[in-house]
Design a protein around this nucleic acid. Structure first.
Lengths: 206, 206
DNA sequence: GTCTATAGATTGATAGAC
DNA sequence: GTCTATCAATCTATAGAC
């Protein structure tokens, strides 16, 4: 079955993004050469200039994709869980290993793109948006009482608690990468539970 | 006042490390060229090869320095604080901005070196050691009841709580870099307090 | 112990064939 | 729309002057 030009173009774009994800995770943004990324996609460097107008364009596209992926992944199979603790376990599992194909490389990609966004002002918004997105999703779950102890926090409290939970997950993943035994899944879930249950986050100073 | 050869050598080494810290934070490990780092230290590339046997040697030395610095910085002015909350505020302040001269660049350096350590097996131990060191320090504070609500957690519980607290601080710093208003100091301290007060971390599963 | 000069290898990007 | 060929710039690392 022959492909149309449009299909082939779409496939090349997809392949380039997939390849870039892998190569950047392996060698870092600066270390990932145009040629290496093209080769990993079974294309040559010219394709990257045609589709993304060069290396920076490809990285920015990767960053956008990474931002959009956050939306889908955060609370995916949350509906299937029963208890709040069960749901927190699911949140952590989704965050700690969103997809098995990437193995443990996604963490490296996360930090590579974060660093890139910190330095490139035109990429800043996408990265900030990613975290804001996850935060909003998590806050929604907290607001509905799905993740906490049943009480209904105010919207601002839910946002604040979500910020803490995301922070905890990111930081635990970093430590786990260097020393897996230091961060068992159970510890992460207990930490999340404690943060989800905090009250008076946005009240007056203690 | 003339310097001895030894003094001059020591100064060059210090200058190279300082310069490397700045340049790596700015451009990343891969993006930091030997020449740029030498120039920032008012030396030329030859000095780096003499002192550190090349770029990788300099990065590893930087990583060791970074590891050792953790020991000193974590609980520095902790003794001066009064209440546990006051002490947590101090821990967060120390972690969030260990020294003002570095400005906000130290966070970038932290993640650059973490990524480097994840990829280079010979640097892995130093990075893991850094976090283990901070963890132990924090756990000690928790064990002595300085940071919690006064109760004395078991040593394993204290270690576990310290892991959570470090994770939270690292993850909050990442979010704050992209969106400062999302992570006020007060929120961080409240999160730390909640984690410091967790009980039964190493008991049986819930 | 540090510098200049330079070798040798790679890089991002472009031009033109197909 | 993708590939081959290639340029100019840049990088690490070395050799030798001082």
């Amino acid at each position: 079955m022959a492909q149309t030009q449009e299909q082939r173009r779409a496939e090349t774009r997809r392949r380039l993004l997939d390849a870039a994800r892998t190569v950047v995770a392996e060698r870092g943004v600066t270390g990932a050469t145009v040629e290496a990324m093209a080769a990993a996609a079974d294309r040559t460097s010219g394709a990257i200039y045609d589709h993304f107008d060069g290396k920076d364009g490809l990285i920015v596209a990767l960053l956008d994709q990474w931002k959009d992926a956050a939306t889908a992944a955060t609370l995916d199979d949350l509906a299937h869980a029963q208890s709040p603790t069960e749901r927190l376990r699911s949140v952590w599992a989704n965050f700690a290993a969103p997809r098995s194909e990437d193995g443990d490389q996604w963490v490296l990609l996360e930090h590579e793109l974060w660093l890139y966004a910190c330095r490139q002002s035109d990429a800043h918004a996408a990265a900030a948006g990613r975290y804001a997105e996850i935060r909003a999703r998590l806050a929604q779950g907290l607001g509905e009482g799905m993740l906490g102890d049943g009480s209904q926090p105010s919207p601002t409290d839910a946002e604040a608690a979500a910020t803490l939970m995301i922070g905890l997950m990111v930081g635990l993943e970093m430590q786990r990468r260097l020393e897996p035994s230091a961060v068992p899944d159970r510890l992460a879930v207990l930490g999340l539970r404690a943060l989800a249950a905090i009250e008076g986050l946005t009240g007056e100073a203690p």
